[in-house]
């Protein structure tokens, strides 16, 4: 029975699109952090047999980045196409 509040932002779609672009800009920074993370593990004195786990970690990060990039590219592509069509803010 709750009364739905009206949305605070009118141009929700274009707002979302701009934040998606922010996310797209952040993704490589985040990816760089994950890729460079093994540097901090390397000097660990736990023995040197960590090539396989490192490799699995790196491939997992890699696959994760690809999936996220693929999900975002759809929105980014549609966003830029709509921009090109000149419908920047259709409320």
């Amino acid at each position: 029975m709750s009364v739905r509040k009206p949305p605070l932002f009118l141009a929700r779609r274009s707002y979302r699109r701009r934040r998606l672009r922010d996310a797209a800009r952040l993704l490589p920074v985040f990816g760089g952090f994950l890729v460079f993370l093994p540097i901090l593990w390397a000097p660990a004195e736990t023995g040197s047999r960590d090539t396989a786990p490192d490799g699995i970690y790196l491939f997992a990060v890699w696959a994760g980045l690809i999936v996220v990039a693929a999900l975002m590219s759809v929105g980014l592509d549609r966003g830029s196409a709509e921009d090109a069509a000149g419908t920047e803010d259709e409320a």
Partner: peptide, 11 residues
């Protein structure tokens, strides 16, 4: 990995 970072940061 270098090119991967460049491409996911294509924006």
């Amino acid at each position: 990995l270098g090119p991967t970072l460049v491409f996911i940061g294509w924006w």
